[in-house]
Amino acid sequence: MVKDNHSHSAEHVLNLRLRVWRQRRGQPGAFEEHALQGVSTSASFLEMMDMLNEKLVRDGKEPFAFDHDCREGICGMCSMTINGMPHGPLPGVTTCQLHMRNFRDGETITVEPWRARAFPVLRDLMVDRSGFDKVIQSGGFISIRAGSAPEANATPVPKDVSDAAMDAAECIGCGACVASCKNGSAMLFVGAKVTHLNLLPQGQPERDRRVLAMVRTMDDAGFGNCTNQGECQAHCPKGITLDVISHLNRDYLGARVKAFFSSTGKVRRGGD
């Protein structure tokens, strides 16, 4: 056990009541209740879930399935709605970076999967986020074959432009934006990628076809539209802001107008 000394953050132990979602693919789900004792406040939320699962396995029961991998807030795999909030109550962190010192002894904690039409539940707390991959596959890239790149410093990029592109590129693709949105919209995710690539000089040649293709794929994948509620921004663990949605709308409108007035009158391949 850790013995506390001077001003290190004090460690305590919590006893909790957990309501956790249990569901099999294609079947209806329900909450299951479990008591869990002796959870250290230094533990992460996922370590608390590990403790619960270890207890279940020792009792011969199936553990709760949940997605997780890096446990340092960057892979975007963890995805739990905790007390109604994607990634839990602490702003700016993923579930794996949420620590139990943010909860009270005796508290009841409700744990659910992402809830969105475009993210069907695979098992318990695991959902299918492949819609995000499909959106990227349709245009979230710069077409550059390995080996064909020019010298890196040949095209200077102003620092403020590069920094703004990096702000958008920090998106980890976790899907909290979709889960928090009453419309199940992926506009923050799509806007972040469009902003990242369309700001950079390297992204200009495919600027229009990129935004048209990504928006079309986003709609086809079952994501809803944006009604400017701002829940996505509030729950994004990486601080992506609604600015990227404005950028997406502006580029989309520009591309649609250009496509409309293009000389042949035809919409180009890759557009809609």
């Binding site: 710069i142 550059i144 790149a149 020019p150 010298e151 890196a152 590069s162 592109a165 390297q202």
Partner: peptide, 14 residues
Amino acid sequence: IDQCVAQGVPFARE
């Protein structure tokens, strides 16, 4: 580095 910059990797700049 050339390849990554061309892909749009936003490396730190001066």
